[in-house]
């Protein structure tokens, strides 16, 4: 279903640094998660590890199209969004290692974090619930005179929730500039799309909300980024919600406890051949945006950041048990 093969897209229409930033975000996310997986299997992580393997093009391609005032509600597989908005790899390790210094000060685990000063909300586990938060946040920013937009991330599974419906309809009624990024990775935990919905494509629902729906190849960061720049540019001028359906496949299990044996091998092989990082490297070298050697340098810089981040987080303390009751209420 690739709709926008990047081979036909002109990368030179935006600055080279932007592409390199997207590539770097994808690498930071991928390599951080590779390290997380290793730590999980070494029992050095508390709780689960949920990764975005195969989803890096979506988060990086969309979040790098945002401006300073924009708001984001990333979901489970969107480490790229946090990193694109300025979160450090160090903070990610602090979060997963339950450090007092981390974004939730050890109060919440794994993917439930976000820094509002970077325009990023911490998700709750109830899928679809964050869409309306993004809606209200951007309504407030608009009221304050900012030309903000919001990007809310959901999987195919969350589109079955009442919250998805409520929030998208609500955003449509109020002409809220909201990009609903549907990461259609074909499985909600173990449930395949055939048991999740019966429309052909999820964006087939867009006309029912009176809004536009757009499909894009979710393994192609160039395609995602160029399409989202265009949509967001229009949205700032003429506020309205848009559904963006990104086709991809979840390459690993729901979490590292899950071997994803229910995903057919042939399907895995098909998407492995279109890995978003490999795709991006090919796009950037083919278009002569960067040489393989320059990209290798970015890779090794990311690896070094991850080594340092992990070691530093490891050396930091977990929250003091005496602070258990603190922070329930704002003063």
């Amino acid at each position: 279903m690739p709709v926008c093969p990047s081979s036909s897209l002109d990368l030179n229409q935006i600055p080279r640094n932007q592409w390199l930033a997207i590539y770097r975000t994808m690498c930071r996310a991928r390599f951080t998660e590779q390290r997380m997986i290793r730590l999980y299997h070494q029992a050095k992580i508390f709780g689960g590890v949920y990764t975005g393997f195969g989803h890096e093009a979506i988060g990086a391609g969309t979040a790098h199209a945002g401006g300073d005032n924009d708001l984001f509600t990333p979901c489970i597989r969107d480490l790229t969004v946090h990193l694109a908005r300025g979160l450090s790899v160090l903070d990610v390790f602090r979060q997963f290692l339950a450090r007092a210094t981390g974004p939730t000060r050890g109060r919440d685990g794994n993917v439930h974090y976000g820094r509002l000063d970077q325009g990023v909300y911490a998700m709750i586990s109830h899928l679809g619930a964050m869409i309306s938060v993004a809606v209200g946040g951007v309504m407030a920013r608009r009221r304050q005179g900012l030309d903000a937009v919001a990007m809310a991330y959901v999987g195919d599974g969350a589109t079955s929730t009442g919250d998805f419906h409520e929030a998208v309809n609500y955003a449509s009624v109020f002409d809220v500039p909201l990009l609903v990024v549907i990461e259609n990775n074909q499985f909600a935990y173990s449930t395949p799309n055939s048991q999740q919905y019966r429309c052909k494509h999820l964006i087939d629902r867009a006309p029912g909300y009176g809004i536009e729906g757009v499909q894009v190849d979710g393994n192609d960061a160039v395609a995602v980024h160029l399409k989202v720049r265009e949509i967001v540019g229009e949205m700032r001028q003429t506020p309205r919600p848009v559904l963006l359906e990104c086709d991809t496949l979840r390459i690993r299990g729901h979490g590292e406890h899950d071997d994803a044996g229910y995903i057919p091998e042939a399907l895995k092989a098909e998407y492995a051949a279109r890995d978003p990082l490999d795709n991006m490297r090919r796009s950037l070298t083919d278009a002569e945006i960067a040489t393989a050697r320059e990209l290798d340098t970015i890779d090794s810089e990311c690896q070094q950041e991850i080594d340092e981040g992990y070691q530093q987080a490891l050396a930091e303390p977990m929250p003091d048990p005496a602070t258990l009751l603190e922070g329930v209420y704002a003063e």
Binding site: L71, S132, V135, G136, G137, M139, E166
Partner: peptide
């Protein structure tokens, strides 16, 4: 608003965290 209790509270959370008093 539409009849959408969850979106009503969700949007209020968004507004409140961006400086409004819904």
């Amino acid at each position: 608003t539409p009849i959408a209790e969850s979106a009503i509270i969700g949007s209020a959370i968004g507004m409140a965290t961006q400086g409004l008093r819904p």
